[in-house]
């Protein structure tokens, strides 16, 4: 009963090559949808407008009172732009990347091409994180650049500090992508993922801080949004976040990302597609 079609059965590709195939597939899917590019464009535009606004208002203050210049920080303003604007665009992108195939049932087609579910999740996470890294660095660099164009004549830019902010924002956005691809894979709904993401990044920490209870206030620093900005602003956030500085904040974000991926992977494996 065998036919030429079933007779010639080539050996399976090596794991590395197989992952490259799935990476290529996921990148083709992400990059062939306009939403991806709209999100990136929106992030860049929002950051540029934010930086212009902040730059001119700072320039006004400095013109009135030259002492105000000492309170100005490129890193702080850019980081706030990332915190208030860019991270929500990364959230939307990651939520869509993880969940849109559950809405349009494209997940069946994907799993037929690549039945190893862990491989699908890994590739999707890497591609989205790579894109988020690019988006994070690009928007942060644009923010600093626009600020410098507006105010550079008054206040010099510390290049090292700027690079640290740009790379920090990129790394943090990449980890947020990992986090929200994990949550999205577990929840399978775009709206739910974005809602949970919004609470983790902004809603919950704000409420905890509103409580006026010190330990709750400190607990807010363990949520990914505040830990993230603490990291990429290098401690110069401009509002109260956490009692601790430095790399520990990146570990907090990483911890959230790993936990979300584990839950997402467990769900993807156990539940029918």
């Amino acid at each position: 009963m065998t036919t030429p079609h079933t007779d010639t059965r080539p050996a399976a590709p090596a794991a590395g090559r197989a992952l490259l195939q799935v990476l290529a597939m996921e990148w083709t899917k992400l990059s062939s949808v306009r939403t991806t590019w709209w999100c990136l464009g929106l992030g860049l535009l929002a950051m540029a407008v934010f930086a212009l606004l902040m730059g001119y208002s700072a320039a006004d203050r400095i013109a009135e009172d030259p002492d105000a210049a000492s309170g100005f920080s490129y890193a702080q303003l850019t980081s706030q732009g990332v915190f208030y604007l860019v991270q929500f665009i990364v959230l939307t992108l990651a939520a869509l990347a993880a969940t849109n195939e559950y809405a349009n049932r494209g997940i069946t087609t994907t799993l037929l091409a690549v039945p190893r579910r862990g491989r699908v999740l890994a590739a999707r996470t890497i591609v989205t994180a790579g894109f988020a890294f690019a988006a994070g660095t690009a928007t942060a660099a644009l923010g600093i650049g626009v600020l410098w164009l507006v105010i550079g004549a008054h206040i010099p830019l510390d290049a090292d500090y700027a690079v640290r902010t740009v790379l920090g924002a990129g790394a943090c956005m990449a980890l947020f992508a990992v986090l929200f691809v994990g949550i999205g894979t577990a929840l399978r709904g775009t709206a739910g993922t974005i809602a949970v993401g919004f609470l983790l990044l902004l809603g919950l920490p704000l409420v905890l801080q509103l409580s006026q209870v010190q330990w709750l206030n400190d607990l807010a620093a363990c949520l990914p949004g505040l830990a993230g900005i603490e990291f990429y602003a290098s401690g110069d956030v401009g509002f109260y976040t956490a009692p601790h500085d430095g790399a520990v904040n990146l570990w907090v974000v990483l911890g959230w990302a790993v936990a979300a991926q584990l839950v997402g992977y467990a769900e993807l494996r156990a539940r029918d597609a």
Binding site: T28, K29, S32, N104, R105, T108, T109, L112, A113
Partner: peptide, 29 residues
């Protein structure tokens, strides 16, 4: 080892991202 070369399936014709071109959809697969 190569599922897409051994089995081809059409389960749900609507299961494609509406924003993607036909060519990009097949290219990804």
């Amino acid at each position: 080892p190569w599922p897409a070369r051994e089995v081809g399936a059409l389960l749900d014709a609507a299961a494609v991202h509406p924003g993607r071109s036909a060519r990009a959809h097949l290219l990804a697969l």
